[in-house]
């Protein structure tokens, strides 16, 4: 029994070294060598300063920006050190209230827009950090952003298309617009 315990303890020690030390260190070394950009968090830099992670969204409420998914992180939205979804059930009255408020806010941001709002633009993402919206949700906001920035809609649409990702291999996932990189690109135009 004692011998058994000793074997168990030693094996745990060796395995800890192997799978908890050598393995993550090896992966980190490989990652840094092959994918230095991705492994450190996909940070976009302007003049050597990080301005955003291309994969993590930021909160947008000003009308000259495209707005991303609603975020349920607390206390601030898009709190990237404390990811969270709303976890509201489908029949929770709080869900209805929040969605109604978001609809009202979108409607007042562009009273002329008469098309129905795509559902992903008023529902909270799972992570609270989703950098993407659907192409439909971006198109819905296009007239407003073009007006606020005094850019022709056609020119803005070109930019929008450049920041649209189609399904991978035409098959996987969903078509999407990266709001984070799109808004960055618009700011750089000016």
């Amino acid at each position: 029994m004692i011998k058994e315990l000793k074997s168990a303890l030693l094996l745990l020690l060796v395995m800890t070294l192997l799978t908890g030390g050598i393995y993550p260190a090896l992966v980190t070394g490989l990652a840094r060598a092959i994918f230095p950009f991705q492994s450190s968090g996909s940070f976009l830099e302007i003049r050597g300063e990080p301005v955003a992670s291309a994969l993590v969204g930021q909160p947008f409420s000003e009308r000259r920006y495209f707005w991303g998914r609603p975020s349920a992180t607390t206390p601030m939205p898009y709190h990237a050190a404390s990811s969270n979804g709303s976890n509201l059930g489908p029949l929770n009255p709080a869900l209805e209230e929040r969605i109604k408020n978001r609809i009202a806010e979108l409607a007042s941001s562009d009273p002329g827009q008469s098309r129905p709002i795509p559902v992903d633009l008023v529902t909270a993402s799972a992570s609270g950090l989703d950098p993407h919206i659907s192409p439909a949700a971006a198109l819905w906001q296009l007239p407003r952003v073009a007006r606020e920035r005094n850019i022709p809609e056609s020119q803005l649409k070109e930019l929008l298309v450049r920041h649209t990702e189609e399904r991978t291999f035409g098959l996987l996932g969903e078509p999407r617009v990266n709001v984070m990189t799109l808004n960055l690109a618009m700011d750089r135009l000016e």
């Binding site: 979804g85 489908p90 098309r115 709002i117 559902v119 992903d120 529902t123 949700a137 999407r176």
Partner: peptide
Amino acid sequence: LGLEVSASDHAPGGNMEGKEVRF
């Protein structure tokens, strides 16, 4: 509430509360 919920090549539609657009 009058939202656009149908699935297409421009939007996922459906119940998007608690889901990510890329998925």
